[in-house]
Amino acid sequence: MTDTAKKRPEFRNINAFKDLTTYRMTAAAWTSILHRASGAVMFLLLPLVIWFFDTSVSSEVSFERFTSAFSSGLGIVPGWLLKLVSLGLIWGYLHHMFAGIRHLIMDIDHHAVNNQFGKTSGLTAIGLAIVLTLLLGARLFGLY
């Protein structure tokens, strides 16, 4: 038994650079870590989102400030950077939502919990978020 059984690698203290890079990242794994990463980014940028909400609804004067922040910048932050950060938020929201709906489907229908569905639904969530982000990004940067 001990002769034939291959000794499996054992990680007691995972090194971010030596060990994590050797992981085989499946579509489901990418969906999962991007779900977590997008959630963390949205948490950190939440005050910016509330600032968007505040300035866009409070008054016509503040609405003007809201729109001009994207064209002529906000303090030391240039307009294009604010657009880029907003696009990052848009992607994060979309990915988090699609990956979350995928979780709900798996919660409701346990037949959906298998390798095949994990892969196809993961790729669908990642793909939908990227395609919609590109479409909205083109609009945000004035391509159409």
Partner: peptide, 9 residues
């Protein structure tokens, strides 16, 4: 929602 998620992280 964010509290539950961030605490998990």
């Amino acid at each position: 929602h964010a509290w539950v998620g961030m605490r998990n992280i």
